[in-house]
């Protein structure tokens, strides 16, 4: 009964909520547009938007030393998670069967393990860092903590179910992933799809004023 619920109705419900709420969020942000500005633009906003989206992938030189640890651990986690999500063999199989209808080459098993280690290690380090650094602890809301722990648990249970020998382990992983889908559009995790908009907006506004970000 529980297995049927997790594998069936709850999966469709959480995926629908994820899809509808994420699109709604993106459309709402885009629909707000930019405030009307009558001043003559000094530079093209579009170029600034594009440049800022990419420039912000690395920290400013002034902050490079101070944010070295977060930068490295952050990239390990984000790239690792992205690779696991779209190129782990069980995920490719699941996505092609349930969503896309077609599949693509998956990572070999050793790469899956190695990527899992990098991503989980990076995330665990970031979670501890968030708690230990007085600034990040002060800036973090309960939603931020919840998001990172939920992602961590999803990844961990995925790794625990790696042998694919026990259905119960797969169901625990899937259930947590479904909770993540439900939470995604409403918490800080939504930055995964909104970051180009926020960076682009900042870049466009300041570039228009002649400020290089």
């Amino acid at each position: 009964m529980i297995a049927w619920f997790i594998d069936g109705p709850f999966w469709y419900f959480s995926f629908t909520v994820f899809l509808v709420a994420s699109v709604w969020k993106l459309v709402a942000i885009i629909a707000r547009g930019r405030p009307r500005n009558l001043a003559k633009p000094r530079k093209t906003p579009g170029g600034g938007a594009l440049a800022t989206i990419f420039r912000r992938f690395v920290p400013y030189p002034e902050f490079r030393k101070a944010s070295r640890v977060q930068f490295r651990a952050g990239y390990l986690f984000h790239l690792g998670l992205l690779a696991l999500l779209f190129f782990a063999a069980p995920h490719v199989e699941f996505i092609s069967r349930r969503i896309t209808g077609f599949s693509w080459p998956a990572m070999p098993h050793w790469a899956f393990i190695f990527t899992g280690e990098l991503a989980l290690g990076g995330l665990l380090f970031l979670i501890v860092y968030r708690l230990m650094n007085p600034v990040t602890r002060y800036l973090s809301s309960w939603g931020d903590h919840f998001s990172s722990w939920l992602v961590f648990l999803v990844m961990l249970t995925g790794c625990l179910a790696l042998l694919r020998s026990h259905e119960s382990l797969r169901l625990v992983h899937l259930f947590l992933a479904e909770l993540l889908l439900l939470w995604f559009p409403f918490g800080s995790l939504v930055h995964a799809i909104t970051f180009p908009l926020s960076r682009g907006f900042t870049g466009a506004v300041y570039h228009r004023k002649g400020v290089n970000l």
């Binding site: 393990i113 899992g116 280690e117 989980l120 290690g121 665990l124 961990l156 790794c159 625990l160 179910a161 790696l162 042998l163 020998s165 026990h166 382990l169």
Partner: peptide, 14 residues
């Protein structure tokens, strides 16, 4: 035991 083994093997190198 299966979950422990996988978790142990994965986190060991970390």
């Amino acid at each position: 035991a299966s979950a422990s083994k996988e978790g142990h093997n994965l986190m060991g190198p970390v």
